[in-house]
C-alpha cells in the first residue's frame, strides 16, 4: 500500500470520527444530511458484499467492517436517538435519494466490467459514492451557520477521494497496474463535485472567517 492510499483511507476514517464526535459528544447532527448518510450505507453495503467471500488483508477487512458499522450507526443516531434526532434539519434536507440511486443503478447495469451480481453492485457503489455528497452540499448551501466540525467533516470527506486519485496515478505508473476507467472516472467526478466547496473552505480558512457557501 502506498502513502497516498493510506492518506486517503485515514482522511476518510478521520471524517467519520469527526462526525461521530459531533453526534456523540455534542449530541447534535445539525447541518448533516441524513440523505447523504443513508446513501453511504447503501454504498458500503453494495460494495462490501464480497467481505464474506474474498479475503484481501486484515487491514482491508477491518476497514470495511468499520465503514459499514459507523455509517449504519450514524444513520441510527440521526433517525432514532431522542436528543440527536431533534437537531436534524429535516425541512432543508429534501434532496430525493431516488434521483441519485436510480440513474446510478441503470448506469451500472449498462456500463460495467462484467454482467455479474457482484460486479454490477460494485460498479453501482462507485457511481453512487461519486454523487452521494450532493444532498449534503445542498444542505450546507441552505444553512446560514456551518459549524467548524461540519465544515471539516465535508473537507476531509472530499480530500479522501483526492488522495485516491493520486494513489491510482501512483499504482498505474509505479506499480504497473491496469487501466481502471470505472473507479478512475467516478473518483474524478466525486472529487470535482467538491471543487466549489474546497474553494470556499480554503478561502474562509485563510481569511479566518466563518465558512459560508453562496446560495
Amino acid at each position: 500500500m502506498n502513502a497516498f492510499r493510506l492518506a486517503g483511507d485515514m482522511t476518510h476514517l478521520l471524517s467519520i470520527i469527526l462526525l461521530l464526535h459531533k453526534i456523540r459528544a455534542m449530541k447534535s447532527c445539525a447541518g448533516i444530511s441524513l440523505r447523504t448518510q443513508e446513501l453511504y450505507v447503501i454504498v458500503f453495503v453494495t460494495r462490501y458484499v464480497d467481505l464474506s467471500m474474498k479475503y484481501y488483508s486484515f487491514y482491508n477487512s477491518i476497514m470495511k467492517i468499520v465503514f459499514l458499522g459507523t455509517s449504519i450507526s450514524i444513520v441510527w443516531y440521526m433517525r432514532y436517538h431522542k436528543v440527536v434526532k431533534q437537531t436534524y434539519n429535516k425541512d432543508v434536507d429534501t434532496f430525493r435519494h431516488i434521483f441519485l440511486i436510480l440513474p446510478c443503478f441503470v448506469l451500472a447495469l449498462l456500463i460495467n466490467r462484467a454482467f455479474t451480481v457482484i460486479e454490477v453492485l460494485w460498479t453501482f457503489s462507485l457511481y453512487l459514492e461519486a454523487v452521494a455528497i450532493l444532498p449534503q452540499l445542498v444542505l450546507l448551501q441552505r444553512s446560514r451557520n456551518i459549524d467548524n466540525l461540519t465544515g471539516n467533516y465535508v473537507f476531509l470527506l472530499g480530500a479522501y477521494r483526492a488522495f485516491y486519485l493520486l494513489n491510482w496515478i501512483y499504482r498505474f505508473f509505479i506499480e504497473n497496474h491496469q487501466v481502471r476507467w470505472i473507479p478512475w472516472l467516478s473518483g474524478l467526478l466525486q472529487t470535482a463535485i467538491y471543487a466549489d466547496f474546497f474553494y470556499y473552505y480554503i478561502k474562509s480558512w485563510k481569511n479566518r472567517e466563518k465558512l459560508k457557501l453562496p446560495a
Binding site: D9, K64, A114, W122, N167
Partner: peptide, 10 residues
C-alpha cells in the same frame, strides 16, 4: 484471471 483488477481498495 487477469481481466479483473483485484478489488483491494476501499
Amino acid at each position: 484471471e487477469c481481466f479483473y483488477e483485484p478489488k483491494d481498495e476501499l
